[in-house]
Amino acid sequence: MAQTSVKEKNIVGSVAGWFKKTFGPKYWDSMKFSLYCITHPLDGFWDLTHEKRGTYAAANTILFLTVLVRILSLKYTSFIFMQVYWEDINIFLYIASILFPLALFVVGNWATTTLFDGKGRLGQVYIGTCYALTPYPLMQVPLMIISNVITVNERQFYSVLAVLSLVWCGLLIIAAMGQIHEFSGAKNILFLVFSLFAMLVMVFILMLFFSMITQGIGYFYSLYREFMFRA
């Protein structure tokens, strides 16, 4: 009992307490576990699924934060690093430009690996991918602030860190997929490449599908027009 009372005296402790009270301790622990995952990828992503340390709620939260940070950076990153042509920005399209490739990757990866004894299930691939995105919001928020207090001469600091955040995410995704599917290194890379191909195939099929639908609707619509015209 003495422990909790000491803990709640500082800010982190009180936030943690509020979280636990509101969302339950499992959620807080799984959120906290994302920090362990990004620093100990192999160990972390193994436990994530095999020990059930990750939750959908936490994964969704991380994904939401990623999208949020990406949108905020449009407005709050200094124009030195990001010039936004606001006339062409469609916020839904912009959100989709993150979520759609992610969904394609998750489905594509699961679809290919499940055929070649990958152990991960669709949900686990989703959780793993989302957890691997953690460094992005974590690094982009400070970067966003830093970008506003530096000049073009100090541009390199920002660029290096920005690239680092993406590379970190990329490496985490590779590690996550290997651990979730229990693949060896080479096989893991091979199936990541396969996943990319699967994504392309899905895009192709979707395009085909949508153009067919458009044609179909167009046909019935013209038929309707014709009837109305004659009637």
Binding site: M82, V84, D88, Y94, A96, F100, V203, M207
Partner: peptide
């Protein structure tokens, strides 16, 4: 050029939703 959202945005839109011209 530097990284401009105009291009990136258009590319992403094209890549993500290939259906939309």
């Amino acid at each position: 050029v530097t990284f401009t959202i105009k291009r990136i945005g258009a590319l992403m839109a094209a890549a993500a939703l290939g259906i939309m011209s």
